[in-house]
């Protein structure tokens, strides 16, 4: 499945093989173009019984349930769940702060690994995957496709993406929510150094558009520990601001502010029902993804909502 000439530094074949055993599920019903493994809000021709419906002229007589007629003296037809494919939108924060690294990998490199693996899994199971890079503007947009060649192009874009500029994540998420009408799994990889109230509104916007939102919150170990032992001049990676501070003096207050922020993020994600994964970039990304996928698999498919539209005619394949 994996194209032979797709050897990238953010792609580890062994890891992808191991992760391939775990399907990527959506927590909400998706509206795909073809038949897939994800629940559709519509009724379709899958093998999973959904409900009975009164017969109306024009229905396929083969779907009449004679036992129900025998019991009720009325004609009912069986409705079955429709399975459709997933649209997965990968949103990559490419602001300047994503370029920070205290170890080998920058947050952008780590995000690339996460999103590239998710993209591979999605395409492998027949789902469509797209990519949107966000910094001050939406720098790159690749619409979701299911083909391996599309995946190759997506990897190319990931590989060539450079971090820089200020973060306007919230505005760009609003923009993305406005422009992406079809239900999707939106996977955001960012350090979320934004105003949380504004982020809440962006997430709510995405949820209103019936997107399944998953956020990988990337943090560097140095950002958490703030382990400096001598006076340091901190240069803002997204602007011209600089702060000269003695870590002995500001360490306590920095950790207080950071702790409050992380707690607020957790609260926000819980309230917003976001699939929130906090990642420290010195962790093994395979484990992170494994837990993410398993957690989604345990959560099951989202139930089909009543009165939904015609079932989609997915392509089984």
């Amino acid at each position: 499945m994996i194209p032979q000439n797709n050897q990238r530094d953010f792609l580890d074949m062994q890891t992808l093989v191991r992760l391939s055993a775990i399907p990527l599920f959506s927590r909400r019903a998706m509206l795909g173009s073809v038949s897939g493994m994800h629940a559709s809000p519509h009724r379709g021709s899958s093998v999973e019984f959904a409900e009975y419906r009164r017969y109306v002229p024009g229905d396929d007589l083969r779907r009449l349930d004679w036992r129900a007629y025998g019991r009720t003296d009325r004609f009912y037809v069986k409705e079955f769940e429709a399975d459709t494919n997933l649209r997965c939108h990968l949103v990559l924060d490419t602001s300047g702060s994503m370029n920070f690294a205290s170890g080998e990998l920058t947050k952008l490199d780590y995000a690339r690994r996460l999103l590239a693996a998710i993209a591979h899994l999605a395409v492998q199971q027949g789902d469509a995957v797209g990519l949107t890079s966000i910094a001050e503007e939406i720098t790159q947009t690749i619409p979701p496709r299911r083909t391996p060649s599309h995946l190759r192009g997506l990897y190319d874009v990931m590989e060539n993406t450079k971090a820089g500029g200020a973060t306007r994540l919230v505005d760009r998420l609003h923009e993305f929510a406005e422009t992406t009408r079809q239900r999707s799994l939106v996977v955001l990889a960012s350090d979320l150094f934004v105003d949380l109230e504004q982020l809440r509104s962006a997430i709510d916007h995405l949820r209103f558009a019936k997107h399944d939102v998953a956020i990988f919150h990337l943090l560097d170990r140095q950002e958490l520990d703030f382990a400096f032992n001598r006076p340091t001049r901190f240069l803002d990676m997204e602007g011209d601001t600089h702060v000269f501070a003695d870590p002995e003096d500001v360490s306590q207050r920095y950790h207080t502010a950071l702790g409050n922020y992380l707690r607020d993020v957790q609260d926000l994600m819980l309230v917003s029902a976001v699939d929130y994964v906090r990642v420290v970039t010195d962790e093994d990304y395979e484990g992170v993804l494994r837990r993410f996928l398993i957690g989604r698999a345990r959560g099951g498919k989202a139930p089909a909502s009543p009165g939904s539209g015609d079932s989609s005619k997915g392509v089984h394949g």
Binding site: T232, F234, L235, V243, A245, V250, Y254
Partner: peptide, 21 residues
């Protein structure tokens, strides 16, 4: 104090908050 190191920093917001305290 003079021998400071210069570090590019992403979580500037927290530093600024710490300084304000």
């Amino acid at each position: 104090q003079r021998r400071y190191q210069t570090v590019p920093w992403a979580a500037m917001a927290f530093l600024l908050t710490a300084n304000k305290m």
